[in-house]
Amino acid sequence: MFRFTRHGFKEMLVGTVVLALMAFALGWAWWPLAILVLPVLIWLFAFFRDPERPIPAEERIMVSPADGTVSDITEIESEPLLGGVPAVRVGIFLSVFNVHVNRSPCDGKVLSITYKKGKFINALQHAKASDENESNTVVLGETTTGKPVAVVKQIVGLIARRIIFTASQGDSLRMGDRIGMIKFGSRTELVIAKWLEPKVTVQVGQVVRGGADIVAKLGQPIHTTVKQPADGEEFEPIGTRVSPT
């Protein structure tokens, strides 16, 4: 079923009104000019699309937390957010034409959420954008032991100005759950602890789909007690945490 994310209702409503007024003004001058706003209106609604995704049933995997293009794969000697253990980071660049809804890469509990104000450097500048841009960093851990397993980092880009994360600290997530979005072009990072023995299955330049495409296979399991959904049940939290405007 085709759907739109509820996080874009305001933008779609305001944008439709503004574009309708522009079309009226342009059409008053010369009616064919009114057609010029149609591609913009189509793009606006397409940006906030939120397609259903087939979540893999395999165990010992992590799926992509975002739609986009894999921009970099980096080995990390010591990741403080994961207890100082070695890790691997997969960076994903989201253009303004990608779906911008973020998803949980695995089953796990939200251990911490850290929002940081910062710059709006082009997200294609991987290192600078990761270190200096406004971001929201989420640490996920095993629901049974609380041991950190992964980090999802939502990073704004040159155009993006708002980060939304819908879960709260202590919430349990299922792999593929919707967890928020970044509005208008951005970068999402997935950092995986090396003790899970991850084997990255994607390459730089590869296009991935959030929640559907596997980015890493794990040699060790993630211990979890996350409840499985009933048919048709929606697990996206109703409450919404947003970045300051």
Rank of each mutant, 00 (worst) to 15 (best):
T69L: 14
T69G: 00
T69A: 05
V70S: 09
V70R: 03
S71Q: 13
D72V: 00
I73H: 06
I73E: 07
I73L: 06
I73V: 15
T74A: 13
E75W: 02
E75M: 05
E75C: 00
I76Q: 03
I76T: 12
I76M: 04
I76A: 05
E77H: 07
E77L: 06
E77M: 00
E77I: 05
S78V: 03
E79V: 04
P80V: 10
P80K: 04
P80N: 14
P80E: 08
L81S: 12
L82K: 04
G83E: 10
G83N: 10
V85I: 10
P86G: 11
P86R: 09
P86C: 10
A87T: 05
A87V: 08
V88I: 15
R89D: 01
R89S: 13
V90I: 15
G91P: 00
G91I: 00
G91R: 01
F93K: 01
L94S: 09
S95L: 13
S95C: 13
S95R: 06
S95M: 10
V96A: 14
V96Y: 08
F97R: 09
F97C: 06
F97H: 12
V99G: 04
V99C: 15
H100L: 12
V101D: 02
N102G: 08
R103I: 08
R103S: 09
R103A: 08
R103H: 14
S104D: 04
P105S: 12
P105A: 10
C106N: 05
D107L: 03
D107F: 09
G108W: 04
K109L: 11
V110G: 04
V110M: 02
L111H: 04
L111T: 06
S112I: 01
I113V: 15
T114E: 12
T114A: 07
Y115S: 06
K116W: 01
K117I: 00
K117N: 13
K117T: 11
G118I: 02
G118K: 02
K119Y: 07
K119E: 15
K119L: 09
K119H: 07
F120H: 14
F120S: 07
I121G: 01
I121C: 04
N122Y: 08
L124Y: 02
Q125M: 11
Q125A: 14
Q125R: 11
H126W: 14
A127Q: 13
A127M: 02
A127H: 12
K128Y: 05
K128H: 07
K128A: 15
K128Q: 14
A129I: 04
A129K: 02
A129G: 15
S130H: 07
S130D: 09
D131G: 00
E132A: 09
N133H: 08
N133G: 10
E134D: 02
S135E: 03
S135K: 14
N136L: 13
N136F: 00
N136M: 05
T137P: 00
T137D: 01
V138G: 00
V139K: 03
V139P: 06
V139F: 07
L140F: 11
L140Q: 05
G141F: 04
T143D: 09
T143W: 12
T144H: 02
T144A: 10
T145L: 10
T145Y: 09
T145M: 09
G146L: 08
G146W: 12
K147F: 07
K147H: 15
K147C: 01
K147G: 02
P148E: 08
P148M: 07
